[in-house]
Simulated assay, not measured.
Amino acid sequence: MAVVSSVARVPIYKLYGEREQWPTPDMVHCESIADRSKLHDWKIKPHQHHGLAQILYLRGGLARVCLDSQYFDMRPGHIVIVPQMCVHGFRFAPNAVGHVVTLAYPLLDRLVQEIGDSQVTPSVPRIYYVDDSDDAAKLDMAFGSLHAEYVGNGAHRGRLMESMLVAILIWLSRHDAYASGGPARERDRGHQYFHRFCQLIEKDYAAQYSVDHYAKRIGITAAYLNVLCRQYVDQSALELIHQRVVLAAKRNLVYTSMTISVVSYMLGFSDPAYFTRFFKRQVGLSPREFRRQAAKLLE
């Protein structure tokens, strides 16, 4: 269990320095390097993400990246992919320019499935180098367009962002990695159980299965599953299930015109009133209030 004890002390964030949910239920977040690092004196301390992968594109300036205790110097044209639960940190020069894209795994998995190549997203961190002016121009356009759509509210915004993400992923799949965070860490059995639990949640979150149901499918006890969840992400197994249900509810409330009753039934709730109480307990707002607030943010 050495992996658990060493990793568990590393902060786990939604985004670096944040523990709150994103303001809208997008499954992608895009910002410039300066947006966040400038607030932290250009230094992002080692941390990790559960359920999120990141792609950092350094277009200008210099940086130094830590990937699972290994350090690499970055210069203009470098791109790093950081999978979930990889301990990573950055130190940027004040003149660093580029983008940081954060993707939730439900979206990333769907894009990979559409591309039809599981190797598009590595299970260990990878660094790539853009050494061709034509390739650099294409990536500048893709990352720039992704960021412009993310901060905007144009028609078909989500679809265009996904198209830019697919272009970036395909480009990376065509190039060899310049460096990696080393061979895949030896995953203990507990980590394998936890990973399997996350996969099952993604597949069956709307079925309202109990923690005991998931534990039996994995082949362990519910108590041990909770221990693993606490060790890896400092949350209970039930909290992780509820998080995924809430994410689906938010997306339906914001991006569809479904009534609250229909949303509740789709997510396995037989009583819309109970769904409303559940949602408010998790989010702090009723579904109706959340939908109204999100609509204002997206105006």
Rank of each mutant, 00 (worst) to 15 (best):
S261E: 14
H78Q: 07
Y274G: 06
D188E: 14
Q21H: 15
A93R: 05
S123T: 03
Q70G: 06
T259H: 01
Y255P: 07
K280H: 10
H147C: 05
Y274K: 11
H175I: 00
M85S: 10
F90Y: 09
V4H: 07
P94W: 13
F143G: 01
L238C: 01
R126F: 09
G61P: 10
V151Y: 12
G98K: 00
R9Y: 02
L240R: 13
Y128H: 05
Y13I: 06
R64D: 03
G268N: 00
P11E: 07
Y150L: 04
P11D: 01
E18W: 11
Y128S: 10
Y13A: 00
E289D: 11
R217M: 06
G17N: 07
P287Q: 03
G152L: 01
G219Y: 08
E114R: 14
G51V: 06
F290Q: 01
H29K: 02
L160K: 14
I33L: 15
A295R: 15
S257I: 10
Q70V: 14
L228P: 00
G219D: 06
C229G: 02
L267F: 01
F275S: 01
V151Q: 15
S261G: 13
F278E: 00
I220N: 06
R251S: 09
L67N: 02
D271Q: 02
V130G: 03
Y13D: 02
M164W: 15
P46R: 03
Q293K: 05
K43R: 15
P272H: 06
A155C: 05
P106K: 12
H195W: 06
V263S: 06
H88L: 04
A294G: 07
H29N: 01
D109C: 08
V245L: 13
L225V: 00
F290G: 03
V112P: 00
F143S: 02
S173K: 13
G144W: 05
P122H: 06
R19P: 02
